[in-house]
């Protein structure tokens, strides 16, 4: 994997959140304020635009640029959270031109650590962590077992999607949904949903570059 993988990943996310914009808005309207789909679409359009102007940079630098762009264009909670996640992930790669499966695990682990630190959330709080943490765990496990990158990312995407669905019966303990108390139960978390879309987009990007 290299810089093209990162650019393709960001483009795949933009396509995906644009297609799913209305669904993300609906999920957020049920337990938040209904802006998640709009914010993610605006943010990743800005990321794709920013990355298209920097063709030479190594993958780590591109992730940092993507993170900075999200912080500067999204607002809300998802801007700082995903912005910090991508910046932390990008710093793991430094200036190297390519990266392999074990390094991808490190990138996503750093992203997860950053989200948990900034958002002070754990699995079970009904947030993006419910999708991201199982995805990172599944990726680490399968890569560790020597699976192909394609299989490992399929496992990660499936784990993120299972994590996303696991938020439905949960009562929110973080973010705006927590104001609803028990009324947040029965709704799928929009942040976990967009996180699952992003891991699925990574799986497609890696498949495209192999």
């Amino acid at each position: 994997m290299d810089a093209t993988t990162v650019t393709t990943w960001m483009r795949e996310i933009e396509t995906s959140v644009t297609q799913e914009r209305d669904r993300l808005v609906q999920l957020d309207a049920a337990i938040g304020d209904g802006d998640h789909g709009t914010n993610m679409t605006r943010g990743f359009a800005a990321v794709v635009q920013a990355l298209s102007q920097d063709q030479e940079a190594p993958p780590g630098r591109l992730l940092i640029l993507a993170g900075r762009t999200l912080v500067s264009s999204v607002g809300g909670a998802s801007g700082p959270l995903w912005g910090s996640a991508l910046r932390s992930g990008g710093r793991v790669l430094g200036d190297q031109a390519t990266f392999d499966g074990p390094q991808l695990v490190e990138v996503l682990a750093a992203a997860l650590a950053s989200v948990k630190d900034l958002g002070a959330a754990s699995v079970g709080d009904k947030t993006m962590v419910d999708a991201l943490e199982p995805a990172v765990a599944a990726l680490g496990r399968t890569v560790g077992e020597g699976a192909s990158l394609a299989d490992a990312l399929e496992a990660a995407a499936a784990a993120a999607e299972a994590g996303m669905r696991s938020t439905i019966p949960l009562q929110a303990r973080k973010g705006r949904a927590s104001y609803l108390g028990e009324r947040s139960i029965g709704h799928q978390d929009p942040g976990a949903t967009s996180t699952a879309l992003m891991i699925r987009a990574l799986q497609r990007a890696a498949a495209a570059s192999s």
């Binding site: 802006d35 709009t38 914010n39 999204v74 607002g75 809300g76 801007g79």
Partner: peptide, 11 residues
Amino acid sequence: PGEVFTSPVPD
């Protein structure tokens, strides 16, 4: 002022 119901950005 941020977008409608969305926090502004640090910039």
